[in-house]
């Protein structure tokens, strides 16, 4: 009952609802408005997950294409933005995993646990924290971004990344440790 009341309240507060309804009816202009409202947030999320501007742009496009196709399945039980971010995370993680499998199969260099180099084509509006996040090892970065920045709980992250809840917590702890260490060296 409480959950239903909260959901109804969220729907009431969701500014996107009218546009979502129009987009569900096939109105592309409404969908474009939703895109304009949320593209920077979605791009920010997928960029932080993949650490590559061009790839993040492709992924963000893929997210919105999938959102368009899945729109009919959005029943408004949560805010549109919450649902959108779940789709974005799933698309990004799914694509990154596919890419990883291929890198491994073609035996190109891909060391999962190495600290990546700073991206040279990073977005102009990266914050100070982002510059440190970019240096985190990939899976550690995923967990940190999803938990600290996107506000997902460890059990939600564990489900999305197909890892144990304890692993998610350990990776987050590791991320914090590395970030604090780098901050202290500044």
């Amino acid at each position: 009952m409480v959950a239903q009341v909260i959901a109804a309240h969220e729907r009431f507060l969701d500014d996107d609802s009218p546009l979502v309804e129009r987009a569900k009816a096939g109105d592309m202009q409404a969908f474009q408005q939703l895109f304009q409202r949320h593209q920077k947030r979605v791009f920010g999320l997928v960029y932080r997950l993949c650490n590559d501007t061009s790839y993040a742009e492709d992924l963000a496009q893929e997210v919105f294409v999938q959102v368009w196709h899945k729109l009919q399945s959005f029943r408004g039980e949560s805010k549109f933005s919450t649902w959108l971010h779940t789709v974005a995370t799933r698309v990004a993680i799914g694509e990154l995993r596919k890419q990883q499998r291929w890198f491994r199969r073609v035996r190109l260099q891909f060391a999962d646990e190495t600290v990546p180099e700073q991206s040279v084509d990073a977005p102009a509006d990266l914050g100070e924290l982002d510059k440190h996040i970019q240096r985190l090892p990939e899976k550690t970065r995923w967990v940190f971004v999803l938990h600290a920045l996107e506000g997902l709980r460890h059990d939600e992250i564990a489900e999305q990344l197909n890892i144990a809840v304890g692993t998610s917590k350990a990776q987050f702890h590791r991320a914090r440790g590395l970030l604090e260490e780098w901050l202290s060296n500044e």
Partner: peptide, 21 residues
């Protein structure tokens, strides 16, 4: 503090809408 001040939005370099459309 950095997490609290963090801006989750980033601007892509190219127009993404054309590709989506």
């Amino acid at each position: 503090d950095l997490i609290a001040e963090h801006n989750s939005e980033l601007t892509p370099r190219r127009d993404l809408w054309r590709g989506v459309e």
